[in-house]
Amino acid sequence: MLSYILRRILYAIPILVGVNLITFALFFVVNTPDDMARMQLGAKRVTPEAIAKWKAERGYDRPLVWNAAAAGTGRLTQTIFFEKSARLFVFDFGAAEDRRDIATEIRARMGPSLALAIPVFLVGLAVNITFALGMAFFRASALDFAGVVLCVAMMSISTLFYIIGGQYLVSKLWHLVPISGYDAGLDAAKFLVLPAAIGVLSGIGSGSRWYRTLFLEEMGKDYVRTARAKGLAETAVLFRHVLKNAMIPILTGAVVVIPLLFMGSLLSESFFGIPGLGSYTIEAIQGQDFAVVRAMVFIGSVLYIAGLLLTDLSYTLVDPRVRLE
């Protein structure tokens, strides 16, 4: 068991190296730092001096991977690759365009992100499972059909409209909660209710439809027939037998995103003005702040891999076949 976990952790290293190489190639090889400088400075101000200054300010004035001018290990370390890419491994992200330290910023913004993402995740899971169980219980009836139609309709609506519609109705028309903003501590609740509700709502369509499929697939299995042959009531069959088996794919599918909750939600945070990592990412993309994007890519990968690891672990918890092997 321990060696299994260790092996999974070791397997993460080459993947992170791969991620690192991809981001390095994207940010420094596809376009040279000179190109980026020209783009950032705009057509009017492009002079060789301005470019050199721009590069020097950001430490992009070094060679890419091999510094022939330096001595000793400096030939490798005094390069863009080492300073900008390799140093991500020690969570040294450098500074954003506004000169602020990215790592500090990330730490500060993690809280608001989680405050929104965790309720959405938990409530969403509960709502989707309940909804799906209901449809599975009334399978092949008009109620089930209506549920599926509703799901398909709900998943055909862009998240953008959920947010815009929610803001319009709840904040603008009914004045129930502020339209956007954020506050520290418990005061944050009034800002978070609406985005959280919208987050749950927008996920119901695809989520509960997917779970319904899982439930129905389980219900076609032989052991369900056995359970019915024992004289168990349909609810006992559903809750004791089907749910327990279907929870394996549901939980493991959910566990993988848990670490990614740190990343926040791009759209909600930016629409509702929540100072989390999601809005940070969007601002970085819109402001073409490459250092921040690079840092977020790396953190995202680390969290995703952590999610994979958690998934493997959760299998060993919920599935006796894996646990006892």
Binding site: I15, V19, T23, V30, D35, Q288, G300, S301, Y304, L308
Partner: peptide, 24 residues
């Protein structure tokens, strides 16, 4: 490896780089 990069960020990074390329 590719999957581990959050999709929006990977797309954003690629599109940003494409923009730089087109602009230059």
């Amino acid at each position: 490896t590719l999957n581990s990069i959050p999709a929006v960020l990977l797309i954003a990074a690629s599109v940003l780089m494409m923009q730089v390329y087109i602009d230059t």
